[in-house]
């Protein structure tokens, strides 16, 4: 059992996500930065889909009630054990009674805490991920609160020895400005050529509205090609007949502020979507904070698939390193 002393800003139980229910309007939820999440699980010898804690901006204080093996990865929210600094990206052994707390965030936005065995919460529609908007999954469908007790599960594959670390080259570096790769398309035909060009050349600022549902950006107004609105679409030029929104898709309601939809997104609606963030860069999106800058870079499908393969290869190499060094 892990006791929650203080919950942090928003700490939720997440796994790979609830896949296959988009059709009924159920978003996948799941860890926003899957790269960091998977590495945390690998470092404690877990199944790659074991549930972990996603920690946002400000970490919780947790007390372990039995000896456990843990790892913290992701954005730099420095962990401390009984007040002493502890490493990230490394297998750590904690003793019953130890308290894990976190320092102020230095870089990135979200850290992942994996515990050997995984967090044991009920599986709802094939996943343990929390979807707070509808109160589904995770710990009672919500972010953690003080006094909660988390059970440790048995999603473990192998024992990894404390001190196992992943090579520095695999540790992502976070900054204050990001290039995020997108595939233009969907309903981008609705934007004027000039606005398409501006969308890709501006440095967009992340607004305070940046959470698991989506990120909203400030920059300048984008314009839509004038037309007589098609039947059923609604009167605003940014409206289309309600359609499905891909994860990572970007829409610009009324042309005012682009919104990128993420893991807890609404699955459809009536705004023209203009581009989609490639899967490899959704991990990086998860580490961006309010007031940081984003420039969207247009890539081809082949480039997106290459980036996806590179990410998978990296995970495969990390697995190799951990299985060699972690014995």
């Amino acid at each position: 059992m892990i006791k929650v002393i203080t919950p942090g800003l928003q700490t939720t139980v997440q796994d790979q996500g609830r896949i296959g229910y988009y059709e009924i309007g159920m978003p996948p939820s799941g860890a926003m930065d899957k790269y960091s999440y998977v590495i945390a699980n690998l470092l404690v010898g877990n199944d790659e889909n074991a549930a972990a804690l996603e920690i946002t901006y400000m970490g919780p204080t947790l007390e372990f009630q039995r000896d456990s093996v843990i790892a913290v990865t992701g954005g730099e929210i420095p962990p401390k054990i009984n007040g002493q600094p502890a490493p990230m990206w490394e297998t750590i052994a904690v003793k019953a009674g130890d308290q894990l707390s976190f320092d102020f965030i230095r870089q990135g936005a979200r850290a992942y805490l994996a515990v050997a065995g995984g967090i044991n919460v009920p599986v709802i529609m094939d996943s343990r991920s929390t979807y707070t908007l509808c109160g589904i999954g995770g710990f009672e469908g919500r972010a953690l609160q003080a006094g909660d007790g988390l059970c440790i599960g048995s999603d473990i594959r192998r024992k990894i020895s404390a001190g196992t670390r992943i090579p520095e080259t695999f540790i992502p570096r976070f900054s204050k400005s990001y290039e995020i790769r997108v595939l233009m398309g969907l309903c981008s035909y609705r934007l004027t050529e000039e606005s398409k060009e501006r969308f890709l050349s501006l440095d967009w600022t992340v607004t305070p509205e940046a959470n698991r549902v989506g990120y909203r950006f400030k920059g300048e107004r984008l314009n839509f090609v004038p037309r007589e609105q098609p039947f059923g679409a609604g009167s605003n030029p940014s409206n289309v007949v309600d359609l499905g929104y891909p994860i990572g898709s970007i829409q610009v309601p009324d042309g005012v502020e682009p919104i990128a939809l993420l893991n807890d997104a609404v699955t459809g609606g009536g705004y023209a979507t203009i581009a989609t963030i490639i899967s490899a860069d959704l991990n990086r999106m998860a580490q961006i904070k309010t007031n940081e800058k984003v420039r969207f870079v247009s890539v081809s499908l082949e480039e997106a698939l290459r980036a996806r393969r590179e990410m998978k290869d990296k995970i495969a190499q990390i697995k190799q390193v951990i299985s060699e060094n972690g014995r």
């Binding site: 997108v182 595939l183 398309g185 969907l186 309903c187 098609p230 039947f231 059923g232 679409a233 289309v240 007949v241 359609l243 499905g244 891909p246 994860i247 990572g248 898709s249 979507t273 989609t276 963030i277 490639i278 899967s279 499908l301 997106a304 698939l305 996806r308």
Partner: peptide, 13 residues
């Protein structure tokens, strides 16, 4: 729709 989605618009109206 990125590398994981295909979107097909049959008609605008």
């Amino acid at each position: 729709g990125g590398d994981e989605f295909v979107f097909v618009e049959l008609a605008e109206e």
